[in-house]
Design a protein around this nucleic acid. Structure first.
Lengths: 115, 115
DNA sequence: TGTCGTACTATGTCTGTCGTAGTAACTATA
DNA sequence: TATAGTTACTACGACAGACATAGTACGACA
C-alpha cells in the first residue's frame, strides 16, 4: 500500500489534529489511533510529530492542556482542548487547503498526457 | 487576496516544476513566470526555492541541465530538461497527491459544523 | 543617468518532521 | 510467574525544504 510521505503532510498535521478536537477534548494516544482509523491506515502519524505539534500549538494559543490525575492506577493523561483561536486557525487552514488544492490541480497532467 | 504559505506547498514544488518541464525544457525565470500566471497569482515561488529545487532535483537525477551560450549579448541561460526518472517521479508524486487529498479531506469539517 | 526587467548565485537561518531511545504502568496469554 | 503487548508519554539531536537577505551583471528604455 502506498504511503504518504512526511513532506506532503507537513503543515497539515495542524488541520488533522485540530479536526479531532473540534467537538471534545482528547489526548495523544487516542488522536493517533483516530488518525490511523479515519485515514484507513493511509496516514500513521509519528508520536514525536504529534506531541511536538501539541507543544507548538499550545504555545501558539490554539489548544490548552489539562491533566487527568484520577485515572485508574495513578496514571496521568494529558488532554487538549481547542481554544477559540484554535478554531479560527482551523477555519483559516481549511480555506488555505481549498486554495492549495485548486492551485496544485492545475499542475497535474491528464493521465493520457503522460505516455 | 489570500496567499498560500510555504508550509502548505512544501513537497509540492517538485510537481509544479516538473509539470512545466513535461513537454519541453525550460529555465528558472520562465518557470517562475509560468507558475505565477498558471496559478493566477495565487502562488509566487521564491527565487531561492526554485533554484535550490533545481539543484536538488538534478542531484536526484530527475532533471538535466544544459547552458545556452549563444544568447544575444553573451548572456547565459541554464535550461533544464526532464529525465525518464524525473517523469516517473512526477507520476509517483501525482499518485501521492491523490491519496493525500483523499486523506486530508476526511479531516475537513462541513461548513455548518463550524458554528 | 537611472530604473526596470532578465537571470541568476551565495550564504546562512528557521522549523516541522523524524530517528532513536527511554520510562512506566497496566493487561492478556502461556 | 514470566513476558510480551498496549497505553501514554518525554528527551534529544539531526535533517532538509523553504526562506531572507544580499549581491552580480547585462540589456532596454526614458
Amino acid at each position: 500500500m502506498a504511503e504518504i510521505s512526511s513532506d506532503v503532510i507537513r503543515g497539515y498535521n495542524d488541520i488533522i489534529i485540530l479536526f479531532l478536537l473540534l467537538n471534545s477534548p482528547s489526548y495523544g494516544y487516542e488522536i493517533s489511533k483516530q488518525i490511523r482509523s479515519l485515514s484507513e491506515d493511509k496516514y500513521i502519524i509519528k508520536e514525536t510529530t504529534l506531541y511536538s505539534a501539541f507543544t507548538r500549538m499550545e504555545k501558539n494559543g490554539f489548544i490548552e492542556s489539562f491533566v487527568d490525575e484520577d485515572m485508574a492506577g495513578g496514571k496521568k493523561r494529558t488532554y487538549y482542548r481547542l481554544t477559540e483561536a484554535g478554531r479560527e486557525h482551523y477555519r483559516a487552514k481549511c480555506e488555505e487547503w481549498k486554495l492549495t488544492k485548486e492551485v496544485i490541480e492545475k499542475f497535474i497532467a491528464d493521465e493520457g498526457a503522460l505516455i
